[in-house]
Nucleic acid binder design. Structure first.
Lengths: 224, 224
DNA sequence: TATGATTCTATTGTATACAAAATACAAGTA
DNA sequence: TACTTGTATTTTGTATACAATAGAATCATA
């Protein structure tokens, strides 16, 4: 789960990464980016061939992804990409809302002015892309904004849980922003966040974040 | 992460469990129960021998435990039992507090009367053991009370996150209850929970739960 | 034709074998 | 003595081989 942070802390030239980690990363991306659709069986033989590794590291990687909740391993019957029910998504958003509420409160309490400015810079950049209706970079910056907020909370467990849930939801949240009107609603939320950050009002920031996530639910719940 | 629930949902006679799952369970228990101390290297050869399995399922199990945050795999240098810093514990308790606050709110909102009664029954049983100062059964019932509460929230993600953090903290929380005075404090919290459940006051239940967990921090923070 | 037993095949689970890397150790040098 | 440098040993990483299981296909029978 903690992969991102540890990689970052390692000098980039010496990329000591074991094969099953690389495989886990690859397959994770395949799932998150939708190349492996939810519900589809993971064809060990085919993917092993495609990735050019043997079954051993591949299966170890699968176990990791299973623990992360991205795949389900059915004993003797192969692994499938986890399919999220509307219940699943609701439960994740409920938890994520409280996680980010806490992130907001802690970040205001603990982050330095420079760090808060960094968040605001991300926000401004997002808004610029919104002005151009440039969806993909907006989406990416949005992810980054929330991740960075979690980091600045100074709470590693929070960051880990947030990152895990975010990964599971990634595809679905992208869907949620497809309609212009819901997009503008999300943008309005983000403006409120920026205000709360400038005011250094942790409670308010937390409330806006939580509300923002539950609004995501309203946007996606009909797509099931 | 989801191990508990799936096991429960499977008829006990047909224990279709793959070897690496059993191994993961065994090693998890060894860690939680303190037979493998934090920081110690996990001797693959020795444990494989002791468990009577080959390295393949054992290593797969290790990957699972790594994703659960119980062990750290250092590439080419073996796995070690994760050692929690005081920072780690604080961050887990902060998150757990908000998770259980949510659990309290949702459970009051969603659980049936029979289910609430079940929680109250667990509570009464705990109190009986406290009256006898019988620590171990009290401790086990306490775990069960919190787990059951998370289940009754009707939110699977919540249950999963709670169960994972709880597993990581298990040993430490046991330490926290070693002193008579802090134990009585915990018991007082639990009486408040029972009252909130009877009153069906979700906010209050959530507050008490969160406070209870942060009080745990006060109890253990000096042991580092 | 439909049903059900029975093989056959494909896939998964586990063990072992081999390769690569890290660590421990020893000998030599300053 | 302290510090290299090289070698041996242990440990880890990966591939392959073999075993067990599930699912598909075949055939027989009603």
């Amino acid at each position: 789960m903690d992969r991102a942070a540890t990689d970052v802390n390692r000098p980039t030239l010496i990329k000591k990464q074991t094969l099953h980690d690389q495989v886990a990363d690859s397959v994770r991306d395949l799932i998150i980016e939708g190349y492996l659709e939810p519900g589809t069986r993971i064809d060990e033989t085919a993917l092993v061939e495609q990735l050019g590794v043997s079954r051993t590291p591949f299966r170890e990687a699968l176990r990791t992804l299973a623990a992360e909740g991205l795949v389900i391993i059915r004993p003797s019957k192969g692994a499938v990409v986890r399919k999220l029910s509307s219940q699943d998504v609701l439960s994740m958003l409920e938890v994520l809302a409280e996680i980010e509420r806490l992130a907001g409160k802690l970040t205001i309490k603990r982050a330095s002015q420079a760090e808060l400015d960094e968040l605001l810079a991300l926000h401004d950049e997002m808004m610029a892309y919104y002005a151009d209706r440039d969806r993909l970079p907006y989406y990416k910056l949005n992810q980054k904004f929330h991740s960075r907020l979690a980091e600045l909370s100074g709470n590693d467990t929070l960051r880990e849980v947030q990152s895990n849930i975010q990964a599971r939801l990634k595809r679905i949240r992208f869907i949620g922003n497809r309609h212009e009107d819901s997009w503008s609603g999300a943008v309005a939320d983000h403006e409120q966040m920026a205000i709360a950050i400038r005011e250094k009002d942790g409670e308010k920031l937390g409330d806006v974040l939580a509300g923002h996530l539950m609004a995501t639910w309203d946007r996606v719940k009909n797509t099931f």
